[in-house]
Every structure is written in C-alpha cells, then in structure tokens.
C-alpha cells in the first residue's frame, strides 16, 4: 500500500516542524537582572485622546520597575492628532513646540509610539511599544562612554542650572546637548484612562534650543570635561515647580543617536 508508506513518512517528517514551547508555571522572567551599564532615553509619543496610549505608559512603567527609573529615563511627548486639544473634557493643551518638531522629524503618525535613544531601526526612528522591552534591554548594557550630570534650581518661576559632561572615552564627532523640562503628577483626563488620570514625566519644553546647544568643539579626549550653563528658564503658569525635573542628553548631530542621558529634580 503506497499510500500508507507515504503517510508514514509524512508523519515522521512532520516531527521536524512540531517544535513548540509550552510555557508552564510563571509567565514572568525570573532571572536576576544585572545592573545596567549605562542609561537609556525612551521618548513615549502619546496623546490624551489616544485609546491605546495608557497601555504604553504601563509598558514603560514595567520597564522602569525592572531596570530602575534612574537607568531608564522616560519622557512622555504629547504630539500629533491625539494630543491636540479637542472638545471637553480633552481640552487641555499638552503639546509643545519642541515635541511637535520631534514628532514631525521622526515622522510619527500613529500613537502610541516610541523613540529609544533616537536609534534608527531600518529606516525609522520610531518603534512599537511591544518592541520597547528588547530594544531597551539591549541598549542598557552598552558601554558607557560619557557621563552627564545635571544641576537645576528653581526660584519662583525661574529655573537655572548646568549640565556637566565627562568624557570617559574620546569623542570625534559634533555632538549637541538637549535640555528639557518635564513635569510629573499632572491630573488631567485621558481617554481610555480616567478623568483624573495621572500624567507623568510629561515634556513641558526645551530649554533655549529645540535641537539643543552645540558643543563648542567636535573633538574631546578621554578624561576631559565640558559644561553648559542655562539660566532664566521661565516655567508655564500652571506648572508646579516641585513636580518639575530637568532631563538632559548628549547626541550625535549627524546620526541623532543619544550618547548619554540623565535626569534630575529641580531643587527648590
């Protein structure tokens, strides 16, 4: 019986394709996470009328819990269709000139979306929320080539401060430094969230330049330092000084890739 011979061969051969992993017990990774070697910036492009955006905030939070919020620095950039102030109750304006500019530059048209260390994958800078985990975990263990230290002081409605850069390794390309002000605990409505939703690490604006301060030199030797001072940054009327932080990062002007980032609370 030819048919049975063939069928028998097929059943044996199909074993090749039956590889399958059934996960039993805990669905969570249980291994100990080694401490990250450097810091990573995750820009969470979002909007208050975007249905799927709260789930992205949850993913960002999970990742911060895993790696520590001092290692993974998350900034929520409200920009695009779902961020524009709409009809009540979503009439608050979260958008910023800087956020709009980045949104356009990165070509983001669907939300939520992420930009991680401004690294390009394929043709795009943006990366889907479900791919943040693997991307972040890879970048956190790259070699640390520089350190950024931030000092920020709030005085009434003014912020002054400085960003110090220590070059652990030499740098041979033009770099820039972007300084942002972010705010936590903003209670405003979020679609598919709540009317009293807590918006955290919201980008409030860029200090002085949207695309940052240009470093005075394009070559720095290992061990050298440089710093940028900023002063008289005036905060918005409804911002709460004690909830503000300063995020600063150094990036390569040509590739836009972030070299190092840090975050510090504004001292009052």
């Amino acid at each position: 019986m030819k048919i049975f011979k063939i069928l028998f061969t097929i059943i044996i051969a199909s074993g090749l394709f039956t590889a399958c992993d059934k996960i039993e017990g805990s669905y969570y990774e249980s291994g100990i996470i080694p401490p990250p070697t450097t810091r990573v910036l995750l820009e969470d492009y979002t909007g208050h009328t975007c249905v799927a955006c709260p789930s992205a905030h949850v993913i960002a939070e999970d990742l911060q819990n895993t790696y520590g919020d001092t290692n993974l620095i998350v900034v929520a950039v409200h920009a695009g269709t779902f961020a524009n102030p709409g009809s009540s109750p979503y009439d608050y304006d979260f958008t910023t000139d800087a956020g709009d500019a980045y949104n356009t530059f990165f070509g983001i048209t669907s939300y939520p979306n992420g930009v991680i260390n401004r690294v390009k994958t394929g043709n795009n800078y943006f990366i889907d929320k479900n791919q943040w985990g693997p991307a972040v975990s890879k970048l956190l263990y790259e070699k640390k080539t520089m350190e950024v230290t931030i000092e920020a002081n709030g005085n009434d409605t003014i912020i002054n401060g400085s960003v110090k850069i220590d070059f652990i390794e030499g740098l041979n390309s033009q770099a820039k430094v972007i300084i942002w002000v972010t705010e936590d605990h903003i209670i405003k409505p979020q679609l598919n969230g709540a009317l009293d939703y807590e918006h955290n690490h919201v980008l409030r604006g860029a200090v002085e330049h949207t695309w940052g301060y240009t470093l005075s030199s394009s070559t720095y030797s290992a061990g050298s330092t440089t710093s940028i001072e900023f002063s008289d940054y005036r905060i918005g009327e409804d911002w709460v000084m004690k909830n503000l932080s300063v995020v600063a990062f150094v990036y390569d002007d040509e590739t836009k890739r972030v070299i190092q980032v840090n975050k510090a609370h504004v001292h009052i």
Partner: peptide, 21 residues
Amino acid sequence: GLISKYQADLDPIYKLPENVM
C-alpha cells in the same frame, strides 16, 4: 496542516515561547 514559528525571546519582563505551533 502544521505551522511553527520561531522567534527568540528577548523580552526582559515575560518568559515567552520561542516556538509557537
């Protein structure tokens, strides 16, 4: 018919099946 997909588990949070049949 039978289909199996292989994708590495690089996720830091979940333990994911690498071969899904």
